[in-house]
Amino acid sequence: MSNLIKIALAGEGGQGVQAVAEIITEAAHEDGREALYIPNFGVEQRGGVSIAFVQISSDQIRAPKFQKGDIVIALSERAIIRTKQYVDQNTIFVYDKSITNVEYLPQNAKYVLGIPAVEISKTELHPRVFNVVILGAVVKATGVISEQDAKNALEKKLGHKFEQDSNLRELNYKALQRGMELVEKVI
């Protein structure tokens, strides 16, 4: 099972990490691979850290959750604290640079990458496509799905909105592109 890739995505409610997980796994499924995605959930409807556990492989996937991720992405300070447990020396840890308190960043990761996704989506794009920037970052960092697969998945999910406003398509593609560049730069 050497080609198994494990990704944990964590953020605040509303940052859209679950949608990213959904898009990645659906794209991998469409591509004929095995994919498994499970969100965390508890009794509080709002307010907790939202985590998505994603696994993609050519073989059947075993347990739905894992202990250590190949890639762990944390988009808020609380998310960093919450996801540290999924990091070991083989993990690439990605966080958003808008988090100024770096005290909790994991010390044992293979790489720790800070990317300015929040800022870029705010200044260059639109805050709404923040999670698409993250999607781009994941695509680039893991190579689990191709850029084209990601675009197809966006089309599938948002196609009806793109129909109404073709600028939206461009905005989303641009966000994807920027996310990929961000990771490319730091690696």
Binding site: T25, H29, L36, Y37, I38, P64
Partner: peptide, 9 residues
């Protein structure tokens, strides 16, 4: 709950 909430093919 895992089987309930997870997605797979």
């Amino acid at each position: 709950g895992y089987q309930a909430k997870m997605r797979e093919s």
